[in-house]
Amino acid sequence: MKKGEKIQKLFKLVLVAAVMLSLPIYYCHGAEDATIKMSTTSSTQASGLLDILIPAFFTDTGIRVKVIAKGTGAAIRDGMDGNVDLIFVHARTREEKFVSQGFGTRRYPVMHNDFVILGPKADPAGVMGTESVVDALKKIAHSKSLFVSRGDDSGTHTKEQLLWKETDLPLITMVTMDKQTLAPADSANWYLSVGQGMGKTLTFAHEKQTYTLSDRGTYIKYRFGREIPIDLHIVCEGDPSLANPYGVIPVNPKKFPHVRYEAARQFARWITSPRGQQLIAEYRLLGKQLFYPDATED
């Protein structure tokens, strides 16, 4: 046998083996007809709310929802790429842009909770009791007290940047690739951008005893839901600027014909129906209400 033949034969063997062994891969696909994919923000999942809503929706409609939890920025990105059928996020202005650019059909307002500014008990910046969030942030900046930012393009991070903008403090714009990030100017020594989810950011802030911005739900969970509670306290709350509205947007079938629009719209309608809204209002984490229903009747 010539060498060329040998190699050819071996190659054929490899090919046959590869093809044969690749066959079972197709069994990975189950029946996924009555299934939609939803990208959402980590807070809806980490708070446990979706563990109530998703099974209830399945009971009512027979539609299964696969949840992919990320930051709001990444979730919106999933929608813009047509990788999911709907998104459930919290960054109002970006959601409206998502719809106006034609990626989503419309925004269904679902619920809201609020953000709080957290800080160490010692309160080095003297923020405790400050009513205006703008004043609170100014105090932190002026005293150069450590402040941890999510820095991950999430809904909370978006909110934080909007709040810094409201303070009139000098800001710097950092451009990484195609993303612009705002941060207070001259803050290298006290403004820490960690690029992590809310949970990790809270743990970080707790370990380093810093100030940070958090949604109330995750804070409650970390403060009251753990054996060792994080040692951070609310130093500023209740300012209308701290509102945190959540919306659901089905991905536009005109843009992406493959999306399961009907099922996605069914979810949006269900979650804004009296049934869905009641489940949201009744959801308690450690005896505390986390989300307040927002849906306005059509």
Partner: peptide, 20 residues
């Protein structure tokens, strides 16, 4: 699944590279 497939592809490939 990944391991079985990788073995099915990687082992013959390893033989091929070692022999050829």
């Amino acid at each position: 699944i990944a391991t079985i497939l990788a073995a099915g592809i990687g082992v013959p490939m390893g033989f091929f590279i070692a022999f050829a």
